[in-house]
Simulated assay, not measured.
Amino acid sequence: MSKLQRKIYSYSFLVPAAIVYIIIFIVPTFLSFFFSLTRWTLSDWEYIGLDNFITFFKEPYLSIGFRNTFIYAVVTCGLKVVLGLLLGVLLTGALRIKNYLRSVVFFPTLVSTIAVGITFSVMMHPTTGLINETLSFFGIKGPDWLGNPSIALLSVAMVDVWKGVGFATVIYIAGIMSIPEQYYEALQIDGGGSWHKFWHIILPLSRPATNSVIILAFIGGLRSFDLIWAMTKGGPGFSTDVIASIIYKQYQAGFYGLSTAGNVILFLFVSLLAFPLSRFLTRKEVDL
């Protein structure tokens, strides 16, 4: 068998996966770009150029959607990184029940997002919710978590963190456990304590895990929709509207071409933020 034949034989194993990828991802992506330039229904379409994009950017509350999307992504990403790292350190320590605690921490990740949203909507009810009833038992008057425009977005973000921190923790556990034992042994010889272990070994050498968590959590925050819609539907008013919820409202109203243009804009928005961030983190990782 010649070198060319061996190469063809090797690449032939990629063909089934490539076909599935093209059908499920590449083709719908190009169709989305095309239909964003049309006024379409399930049975007909009309080419209208950039009108959908012009109309989308004239949306009066679009600036609020962009702002909320960015704030939501930064808050959820930051908290998942910090809490995931702390839990990762804790659950790779000498705890006797660490395997059980790992399961407990990861469990919310497995629960349906819609189910989580509905459950916490009930728990955050201002008068009959479990959270405010618990606070009132200690003499504290709880706020209207989802009805107050000032805190509604942050309330949903906290639920997102509760649900997603388990995944971040698993990534950190894998990163911390991959650190060679020789570093810890050298630290013990030098007389270092727990703080030195964390600051000089775990924190810098778990940077690949940190980069992965930042990228995944940030992109997830920018694309977030289902939890926000299940808990607030963008309300009260437009205080928790994100780009995805604005797009969905346009789809509900029957503006299919307009909502498709919104999806294209969301795709470009996420790409313009995520790719530079990924390159920056990767370069820092290499420099380390």
Rank of each mutant, 00 (worst) to 15 (best):
I24T: 08
F66Y: 12
V15H: 05
A73W: 10
K197A: 09
H200R: 11
K163F: 07
S278M: 14
S121M: 10
T232L: 14
F238I: 03
P236V: 02
F275H: 06
L90G: 11
F34S: 09
Y72D: 03
G49S: 07
L14R: 01
T113M: 08
F255S: 12
I64A: 10
L227I: 09
N99D: 15
G254D: 12
W229N: 13
S206I: 05
S239V: 08
Q188A: 14
A261F: 11
A17S: 14
L90K: 02
P276L: 02
F107L: 15
F280K: 11
P236K: 14
F33G: 14
I176P: 11
N263G: 14
I265R: 00
T169V: 06
Q250T: 01
I179K: 02
G164V: 05
L135N: 06
L277I: 07
G237M: 12
V264Q: 11
V82N: 05
K58I: 00
G142V: 00
A17G: 15
F269T: 05
I118V: 15
V116E: 10
G235M: 05
I243E: 03
S103H: 01
P60W: 03
L266E: 10
T41P: 02
N263H: 03
A244P: 08
M231T: 12
V286E: 12
L227M: 13
L50T: 11
K80D: 10
L266S: 03
F66P: 01
L37V: 02
I201D: 13
S224V: 06
M1Y: 06
R283Y: 06
F267P: 00
T69A: 09
L87Q: 11
L83P: 04
G221M: 13
I22T: 13
A261M: 04
G234D: 12
P16F: 13
I64F: 04
G49R: 05
G221I: 05
G191K: 08
G193I: 00
T128Y: 15
S103K: 06
G93P: 00
R6T: 07
Y184W: 04
